[in-house]
Design a protein around this nucleic acid. Structure first.
Length: 478
RNA sequence: CGGGGUGUAGCUCAGCCUGGUAGAGUACUUGGUUUGGGACCAAGGUGUCGGAGGUUCGAACCCUCUCACCCCGACCA
């Protein structure tokens, strides 16, 4: 059978992924090294994702703000671990003017900045600086803010959506009076992320704390949402950090307590990015292309008139009218009346992952029926029903699709996790080419032998298991 | 920064070894026949051959320099 995407997932997963993105018209590589251009259809998905996430962030009592793109170099220098973590991947702004010299446009040597700026790789520092001024009294706490911005990390090995030098994200930054509140907040946002990924993206999540070797630079605790891709590799889809007093001390975020004592505050930070889109695509899509869960599909339904020349106008009008009716139910509908062969239109929207496809031909127009096909199931879900029945059941149908996609992904996840007792059992699995996550006692991994396995099989500790933190998940990762 | 590779039509690439003035597939445009899971026929447009210099009567091809990008390692939301 012909597939929408070649090669298929089993033939070559990473090439399949590249072609999936091209075929679904989501994004492309840009002229700027490591940076992608997100195309309108891809950005529409991000906007929907963002809207849902923003709602949840606001429900958590956080307002949005906006800080500068550029961060003074010395800000970065204030937290030692943080610098160590990011120094190697910073884009640096050193001049403020261009000049034509010998016919070549270049930075004007006379415009050199006395202190360079770096393009934010993350904003703990510049936000920490602001917070030191905004926090004076215990009454100013907690202070919670978030920003939706792009950041830049000069990555060595970029991949569309999964790791790009520039990416879009939200970064939340909260300040608290006590350690307990901050710890609870880091945990809370971790939970907000996991719920969001399951309920909105239909992508199941493994929740846990990062081991010290994988922790965010400058954090006491990092809580992560790990996802399992169809090839068994891990994707870190979102993290929440308990920053302790590292940044409060580096940036002097201090408040006068009820007791009259000046003390350092406690901060958290938490972020999710366009990387989550990569997870969304890699978890649900199949060999015919993208499969989108209804909640983040730019078009939840596509209507394709199956027309001949003689009845084209009539059928298009009819389809438009029905599309309008569905829109009144708050459903995002595309009626494709473009001048293409109807079979071409079908493949186009299959590849773009529209959850539900409706076909209307001349006979159906007569009888008040239509043909529907679910994207997540495919051809075998094709059936003809009356317009009235669809109208009354379509909202539930979209919910069912959303739910089924989550269940399917959850089931696959279970099959992807292997429990092992010992390092030798782990190694025999790896050497046999077993893919997926491995769950093992954390203690077992604290030895040189495990470091060898890390080298040899390119695996890493993904996280301790939140359900039982004596266990750690091991996997290859993106 | 190490190791390998590639720059030729919108895209994927052939041509280079053995110099003679640029091709295929695909996409695109037009017309016709088609049309419920990827149609076919015909006609048509498309290039500073990454850049600079050199050798030559003549360079996509040979030589020198240069720039960019890709893959493998260190990094990561």
């Amino acid at each position: 059978m012909k597939t929408g995407i070649t090669p298929t997932r089993s033939e070559n997963f990473s090439e399949w992924y590249q072609n999936l993105i091209t075929a679904a018209d989501l994004a492309e590589n840009s002229p700027v090294r490591g940076c992608m251009t997100i195309k309108p259809y891809g950005w529409a998905i991000w906007e929907l994702m963002r809207t849902e996430m923003d709602k949840r962030i606001k429900n958590a009592g956080v307002l949005n703000a906006n800080f500068p793109l550029l961060i003074p170099l010395n800000f970065f220098n204030k937290e030692a671990e943080h610098v160590a973590g990011f120094a190697k991947e910073c884009a640096v702004v050193t001049h403020h003017r261009l000049k034509m010299i010998d016919g070549v446009l270049q930075p004007d040597p006379d415009s050199k900045l006395t202190e360079p700026y770096i393009i934010r790789p993350t904003s703990e520092t510049i936000i920490g600086d602001a917070m030191s001024r905004w926090v004076q009294s215990w009454r100013d706490l907690p202070l919670k803010l978030n920003q939706w911005v792009n950041v830049m990390r000069w990555e060595m090995r970029p991949r569309l959506f999964l790791r790009t030098s520039e990416f879009n994200w939200q970064e939340g930054h909260n300040v608290f009076a006590t350690h307990e509140e901050a710890t609870a907040d880091a945990r809370k946002m971790h939970k907000v992320y996991a719920d969001y990924m399951e309920q909105v993206l239909a992508t199941p999540v493994i929740m846990g704390e990062k081991t010290p070797d994988e922790r965010f630079a400058g954090a006491d605790h990092t809580y992560t949402c790990e996802q399992i891709m169809q090839d068994g590799k891990a994707l870190q889809a979102g993290t929440s950090h308990d920053l302790g007093q590292h940044f409060a001390k580096s940036f002097n975020i201090q408040y006068l307590g009820k007791d009259g004592n000046l003390q350092h505050a406690w901060t958290t930070s938490w972020g999710t990015s366009t990387r989550m889109m990569g997870g969304l695509f890699m978890i649900h899509s199949d060999d015919d292309g993208l499969v989108l869960p209804p909640l983040v599909a730019p078009y939840q339904i596509v209507i394709i008139p199956i027309s001949r020349e003689e009845n084209e106008q009539e059928l298009n009008d009819y389809a438009e009218k029905f599309g309008e009716k569905l829109r009144s139910l708050d459903i995002r509908v595309m009626v494709d009346t473009s001048d293409m062969r109807s079979s071409d239109k079908m493949w186009k929207w299959i590849k773009r992952g529209v959850p539900l496809r409706i076909e209307i031909g001349a006979r159906e127009m007569e009888s008040g029926t239509l043909t529907i096909t679910r994207r997540d199931i495919g051809k075998e879900s094709k059936r003809t029903i009356s317009c009235d029945d669809l109208y009354s059941s379509v909202s539930d149908l979209l919910k069912t699709i959303q739910q089924d996609m989550l269940e399917r992904a959850k089931k696959r996840n279970e099959e992807m996790i292997t429990s092992v007792e010992s390092l030798s059992e782990l190694e025999s699995n790896l050497s046999n080419g077993k893919i997926g996550f491995f769950r093992i006692k954390y203690q077992e991994t604290l030895c040189p032998k495990f470091d060898e396995l890390i080298e040899k099989y390119k695996i890493s500790r993904r996280c301790l298991d939140d359900k039982d933190s004596e266990y750690v998940y091991i996997a290859k990762s993106y």
